[in-house]
Nucleic acid binder design. Structure first.
Lengths: 122, 122
DNA sequence: GGAACACATGAACACATGCTCATATGAAAG
DNA sequence: CTTTCATATGAGCATGTGTTCATGTGTTCC
């Protein structure tokens, strides 16, 4: 197919053409549906407002107005993002008197944030 | 501050008002700059094209045209996304004859994808 | 040097996304 | 039952983002 392949075959004893590599990777990769789901999951962590909310809820459950005050973001904006996080099953809430107390609905949230943090903070 | 707090204090021996919870969470949360960085990191994994590229490169280094063929996405689109991934230091590349061979530049990429996968696939 | 291939890049466009503002809902207190 | 506090929601808007199309750059091979 091209010289690189020939060189590789001789050099590394890897008798694969480009087509073979493609086929091999295709077999080993996750299903496309799974990757779309996965992208949607990471999308939740890719917005700073949502990430801040989840990061805060990692420390303690909190009602909506406290989240808004803590983060210095309007109540409406928080509410909109909480709606999305609930739809994704990452956050849940319960009513407690006048307040809606929010909390993480999934233990994975903490570990995903943690592994990301370990990367960012070197 | 309100009745819930009083109930909590009596019930759980947690003498915290809403304000105290906010202060406590604020102390324990990561710095805001870090959270913005972290959101930017997750943003890279939040687009299906970029995620597919990284997932493919998790299996094997590949040249641009093979990535495009594997994923069934135009060479131009792949190239644009690769540019972004390189800027974020998640992917690197070297020239090899006519081809540009791309590979993961960061071991964290695999672990981030893996932990996300473990969540998506239950 | 020129043709052919591999990749990069810029402009344009369509679409998604997150916020604000105004308003609705819903529980609780008087 | 009306007011008040806490939260939700819809419309509108501004901005961001990803793709395509056309073209530029760089490398190999003749």
């Amino acid at each position: 197919m091209n010289n690189q392949d020939d060189a590789l075959e001789l050099l590394c004893d890897v008798p694969e053409t480009h087509g073979d590599v493609i086929d091999s990777v295709r077999r080993d990769m996750p299903e496309e549906d799974v990757l779309y789901e996965l992208a949607d999951l990471f999308k939740m962590f890719g917005d700073s407002t949502r990430l801040k909310i989840m990061s805060a809820l990692s420390e303690s459950e909190m009602c909506v107005c406290d989240i808004a005050e803590l983060l210095g973001i309007s109540q409406s904006a928080i509410s909109h993002q909480l709606r999305i996080l609930k739809q994704s099953k990452l956050v849940s809430s319960r009513r407690e008197g006048k307040n809606i107390v929010c909390f993480l609905a999934d233990e994975h949230v903490r570990s995903i944030i943690a592994i990301g943090l370990s990367h960012v903070t070197e």
